[in-house]
Amino acid sequence: MEVGTGLYLMGLALAAGLGLPLAVIGAGLGQGRAVAGAMEGMARQPELAGRIQTGMIIGLAFIESLVLFSFVIFFLLQGRLPTVTP
């Protein structure tokens, strides 16, 4: 195997493996902040809990969809990796 191909495959494997966890770290922090804010709001004003919860779910879905985009990219990259029989 040539050096260039090896480097390409190494980069591909690293990108496929590392991309999703990085996205998950970011989205986890973001969702944590969103839920914390929503919970605080609910504790302060329990009468608005329903509306805050709806908004929170929408926000969480938006944050989550970013992870899912990188999940789709992960599958695209994974499909390009060759299968190796040891």
Binding site: A61, E64, S65, L68, F69, F71, V72
Partner: peptide, 13 residues
Amino acid sequence: VSLSIRLYANMFG
């Protein structure tokens, strides 16, 4: 795009 990929990737994942 975001509507369809959100639902698809959730279920597929």
